[in-house]
């Protein structure tokens, strides 16, 4: 019995910033493209894997934008948890929170 071998598509690579995606934040805090059209996740997109990867990467870019604004506009700084972790330790499991 033969089965067709499914060829895995290479993981798509996206940019880091909103500008790389062609999006920006408008005055009403909406995520819009260069034509002012609001972002919509296409549930019926033929390439769902790509659509989801694109959405996740875009979400990360939005999060970076929010963190940048918190830092620049309100003086927030990143703080690593667990508290007291050596700053040079990049191996131990860790996360960060934003503090002002």
């Amino acid at each position: 019995m033969y089965r067709r071998r499914v060829k895995k598509q290479p993981k798509p690579v996206f940019g880091e910033s909103l500008e790389d995606f062609g999006y920006s934040i408008d005055k009403s805090s909406g995520l819009v493209d260069s034509e002012g059209k609001q972002y919509v996740f296409d549930l019926k997109a033929p390439n769902r894997d790509y659509q989801e990867a694109h959405c996740h990467a875009l979400t990360r870019a939005v999060r970076r934008k929010i963190e940048d604004r918190l830092a620049q506009d309100y003086g927030f700084v990143k703080a690593t948890i667990p508290v007291g972790l050596d700053a040079t330790d990049s191996v131990s499991p860790q996360a960060y929170i934003m503090l002002s």
């Binding site: 703080a79 948890i81 667990p82 508290v83 499991p93 860790q94 996360a95 929170i97 503090l99």
Partner: peptide, 20 residues
């Protein structure tokens, strides 16, 4: 990777409240 002591949303918030 799971951070010891912060394995869940509840523990994460409890940790931040207590230590920060």
């Amino acid at each position: 990777a799971i951070i010891p002591g912060i394995e869940s949303p509840e523990k994460h918030v409890a940790y931040v409240l207590k230590h920060v």
